[in-house]
Computed example of a mutant assay.
Amino acid sequence: MTPDQIRLVQESFRGVVPIREAAAALFYEKLFAIDGSLRALFRETDIKKQGAKLMAALGFVVHGLSRAETILPTVQDLARRHVGYGVEEQHYATVGQALIETLDTGLGEAFTPPVREAWTAAYGLLAGVMIAAAREVQLAA
Rank of each mutant, 00 (worst) to 15 (best):
T94A: 08
L8P: 07
E88I: 15
L8A: 06
K53W: 02
A140Q: 15
A127K: 07
R7I: 05
L38W: 13
Q10V: 00
I131M: 10
A33E: 15
E109N: 10
K53R: 12
W119Y: 02
L103K: 14
V137L: 10
L41S: 02
D104M: 15
A22I: 11
E29Q: 10
M130C: 13
R14P: 09
L99F: 08
L99P: 09
P114Y: 14
L99W: 03
L103G: 06
E29P: 04
V87N: 05
E101A: 15
I34E: 13
D46L: 09
A22N: 07
G96Q: 12
V137N: 10
I34G: 12
V129H: 05
I6G: 00
T94P: 12
A56S: 06
V83C: 08
L38R: 15
L65F: 03
Y92A: 05
T105L: 14
L107K: 07
Q97A: 08
V75W: 00
M1D: 00
A134T: 09
M130I: 10
L65P: 00
A79Q: 01
I19C: 05
E136P: 06
I131S: 01
I19T: 04
K49F: 01
A134Y: 11
L103I: 09
L107S: 10
T94E: 10
A22E: 13
P3A: 05
V95K: 00
D77Q: 15
D46N: 14
Y92F: 14
A141E: 15
T105E: 15
G84M: 09
E29L: 13
D4I: 02
